[in-house]
Each structure stands twice: as C-alpha cells, then as structure tokens.
Design a protein around this nucleic acid. Structure first.
Lengths: 203, 203
DNA sequence: CCGTAAGCACACAGGACGGTGTACTTAGCA
DNA sequence: TGCTAAGTACACCGTCCTGTGTGCTTACGG
C-alpha cells in the first residue's frame, strides 16, 4: 500500500480531494495564470478545504509542478502514436491544435514562475526536450536527412505559434504548419516520395 | 511647455525621477519579471521616493505600459534601417540578437499580465504587428513572391526562438536563422540573385 | 533671493497571499 | 460496528503588495 492511493480510478482511500484540486488547477491556472490564482480561490473551486490541500501538497510550488506533470499523456501520445498517419502526416499533425488551448502551459509556467531552478521550470524544460526528441524520431522515420535538426526546427515552430497565438490573440498555427511543410519537404530527399505511402521507410 | 518636460537631456524641471524609475524598471522587470517586482523595491533601486513614483505614474499598470513603450527605437530601427546590408541580410540580421536578452519583454509582459485588455498587452500586440510589418516591407524589398507571408513567418520564427531560448535556457536563434534562410531562399524567385548585391531591387 | 514645483522620508491603510493550528466529522473497510 | 485515515470548518499568522496622507526639504528659474 506504499503509494498506490491514486490509481486510474482514484476511488481508494478517501473521496479524491487530490484529483479535484488538480482539476481546479488545470482550469484556473489556464484561465487566470498561476500567479493570479490564489490558494483560497483554488480550494474553493475544488470544493476542498485548504487544510486538505496542504496535506496533499507541501506548498503551491509542488502543486504547480504536479499540475504540469499531468499533461503528458494526451498531448504526447495523442499525436505521435497515431499509426494511421504517415510519418510526414504525423509531423504535420502536431500543428493541428484545437483553438481551445490558450497557451502551452509549459511556456506559461516557465515565464510566470521566472525561476529556471523551480522544479516546474525544470520539468517544462524536460518536456520541451521530450517533444523535440519525439519530433526527431518521427523525422527520422520520415527519412529526413538531418532528423535532429528537423526535430528542433519543428519544435521551435510549435513554440513560436503558441506564443504568437497568445500575444496576438490570433491563431498562428496555420502559418507554422506552412513553414513545417516547407522544412519537411526540404529535409526529406526528393527521391523518397513517401508523402502518401503508409509504409515505413528503411533507415 | 506643454509636455516637453522629458527631452533627451531630461534636465528640465526637477532632477529626473521619471527616467530613473523607468531605468530601474528596465532592469528589474527583466531580471525578476513584472509580477515579482514590487513598487517598494523598484523605488529603492531607482532612488526615488514612492510618493514621487505615484506622482509620475497613476499606478503600476501605467508604469508597465510606459516601460514597454520605451523599447522601440533601438530594436526596430537598429536592425531595419541599416543601409549597409542587402534586404536579405537585413532579414537575417533580425536573428542576430546578443545573448544578453533574456526574453522579449513584450512576450513576457503579455504572459505575465495575463489580461489581453491590459494596455501593456495591447501595446505588445501592436508592437508585434509592427515588427511583422517591417519584416514584410523588407521581404518585399528582397523580392519575395509573397512578402506578407514571409514577414509573418519570420516574425513567428523570432518569437519561437525567443520563447525557446527562455524555456530551454539555450540559444535558439541560430536554429531560427537557419529556418529563415530556407524560407527566404524559397520565397525569393531563384532568378533574382540578390544575395550579395547591395542594389535596391525594383518593386 | 525668493517662490514654486519637484522630490523626499516615513508611516500606514487595506487587501491578497501562502501557509498553519485545532477541533471536528465523515467515509470505507475489517 | 467500530477503528482509522481522509476530509472539513474556520480562525489565524506573518508577509508582501499596491497605493495614500502628511509634513518637510531642496533645486531652479525669474
């Protein structure tokens, strides 16, 4: 019974205050930002007593870090594990984000916290590197000449689009996708016409 | 004598508290962020009494807005008005930023303030549009087929590099510059070899 | 040299914030 | 049913924040 109190069902032991707290975090941190969301308000929204919150998390910093840690599954696997797409299509699918997302929470956290040493900032860094790595893997699959370079470039495009969407309040992902298409076509040797073929290219 | 109290010399009327405040803002807002810099600390750094600060600015919001407004001259004209470079070189020069800049202050402000209605956020938006417009102009000079698209694309690259540099704590501008070179070469009709020629291309 | 406006020192209001202490109630399982 | 861990209610602390009120000093131009 060491630490399995929070399984996927989360019904063991208690009534799931932790999940409610994290759910409220997801909503409020996105709507108002991290710094502008107080613990009082957060606990009220989660319908959790403040005392309980501080029994689950040693402080707001830890809550923020855990809040970030709960984003991976949907985003990362949701895009890169789609076997119905060619590698090239998968690379481009990373730019098909629903217009709901206000701003990549990792960027927002890193900017708001303003401390590179903060655990959440470090995690944001790790996450961004992981995304670039997955892009690199997919770029390699697609047959790119320099997959690392292409992965890094596409990652930069995604972050640029996210930032610009936020600052300008106007969807910048189509622009980024257009650049991505150019970069991919330039990086993949023209002889390998894998645009529409679902087959895996040998490496 | 309507409003010329703050000329370049700034010696008229008093001893220049306003400029000292804005100078301290430039330093502290960049080093610590806007939200994490209190007015007390800022006034101490500026060697200005708090009372004086609030006689120059109705509130912190106005100070932040004015702080952003003081950035233009160096950045915008410093890059785009260089007549010693070809248009193409000028476009690429936008990516030669000194490694001192922590993060584009406009992005930082927009994210930190977290309110699109805030005057500073609106100004950040205007500024970003102005930069894109100048890039578009230069792209047109360089003979790009679709200068507006290229300008928007380069602006996205700059913001992506700025964001990524901040989040990853690693200079991303070379990557962005590499992408920019590809985009420029793709956008400019191959026949017009203006790479090294200082002459103005007719539009 | 003197008046006026700029600036100063400093205390303080009023609120939001993160975080804690204490005594109580409930949920779930054996 | 009764024990134990999870959750609750709520008052409270110290700190920091933006912003003000008041009375004083200084710089500078006429």
């Amino acid at each position: 019974m060491t630490e399995l109190e929070k399984g996927p069902k989360g019904r063991r032991r208690g009534r799931g205050a932790r999940e409610r707290i994290l759910g409220a975090s997801r909503q409020l941190f996105r709507e108002q930002g991290i710094n502008r969301t107080g613990m009082d308000q957060l606990c009220a929204a989660a319908q959790v007593s403040k005392r309980t919150a501080y029994q689950h998390f040693t402080g707001k910093d830890e809550l923020v870090t855990e809040y970030l840690r709960r984003f991976d599954p949907a985003v990362l696997s949701g895009v890169f594990d789609r076997t119905d797409l060619t590698p090239r299509e998968r690379l481009l699918a990373a730019f098909d984000i629903p217009p709901s997302t206000p701003l990549c929470p990792y960027i927002a956290a890193a900017v708001e916290l303003h401390d590179p040493q903060h655990p959440a900032s470090q995690y944001a860094r790790d996450y961004k590197k992981a995304v670039a790595a997955r892009l690199t893997d997919t770029a390699r699959e697609a047959g790119a000449a320099d997959p690392e370079q292409l992965g890094e470039q596409l990652a930069l495009l995604i972050d640029g689009a996210a930032t610009r969407t936020r600052v300008l309040d106007d969807d910048a992902f189509p622009t980024a996708a257009a650049i991505a298409a150019v970069l991919i076509d330039n990086a993949v040797p023209a002889t390998a016409g894998d645009d529409r073929r679902g087959e895996e290219v040998p490496r």
